[in-house]
């Protein structure tokens, strides 16, 4: 339990997790202050949708609150939390795709997609957001977050080869959207 005399901000993460296990809401708030930026950033980059990203943050921290019992402490808490985030973001995107009666474009790297028209130049963040879903997810997880293709494959249900192909596709689309400095 988090002591009432101690500010939660003074506690280390293990103490906060213990607080969470005992149902102390202040521990959740402290963990939120520590990790919400990363969870939101990941959700926003994966979905390219601020309102979806907010829903993801909310769901992830509520899941952490409800399911802290399933966290065994073998990985870092942040790793567990970010994996919940990725799973939640992918679920959201699959549901959205189903709502649009479109498949999440993981397997469609070799056919025309709803790519936006090429613009002259963009900053990298905007260019990432403009990528098709499948390419964006793989690019964000691999090049921004440092996941390996095998991990991406396991999380998203695609083959590692598809993940690689999506990554190369994403980089080329970004290269086109960021402009061509070469002759």
């Amino acid at each position: 339990m988090v002591s009432g005399r101690t500010s939660v901000l003074d506690l280390d993460e293990n103490e906060l997790i213990a607080g969470l296990r005992s149902g102390d809401e202040r521990a959740l708030e402290a963990l939120y202050r520590l990790h919400a930026g990363r969870v939101y950033g990941l959700g926003l980059r994966l979905t390219a949708d601020p309102s979806r990203a907010e829903e993801i943050v909310q769901d992830v921290f509520l899941q952490a609150w409800r399911r802290i019992g399933s966290f065994q402490g073998r990985s870092r808490f942040s790793t567990w939390l970010y994996r919940l985030t990725v799973n939640r973001a992918l679920d959201t995107m699959r549901k959205d795709s189903a709502g649009r009666r479109e498949a999440l474009e993981f397997e469609s790297f070799d056919r025309p997609t709803r790519d936006k028209p090429v613009e002259t130049t963009m900053d990298l963040e905007s260019a990432i957001q403009s990528l098709p879903d499948g390419a964006r997810v793989v690019f964000v997880l691999h090049d921004v977050e440092g996941y390996r293709h095998e991990e991406i494959a396991a999380l998203s249900g695609i083959a590692p080869g598809t993940s690689k192909a999506q990554l190369f596709r994403a980089r080329r689309l970004l290269r086109a959207r960021l402009g061509k400095p070469n002759p």
């Binding site: 809401e25 959740l28 708030e29 939120y32 919400a36 930026g37 990363r38 969870v39 939101y40 950033g41 990941l42 926003l44 980059r45 990203a53 907010e54 943050v57 909310q58 921290f61 509520l62 609150w65 921004v144 977050e145």
Partner: peptide, 17 residues
């Protein structure tokens, strides 16, 4: 890696809690 979420988000979580 970090993008600051909107400040109202924690309040929404608290309401859900």
């Amino acid at each position: 890696r970090t993008i600051e979420p909107p400040p109202h988000l924690w309040w929404r979580i608290q309401e859900s809690l």
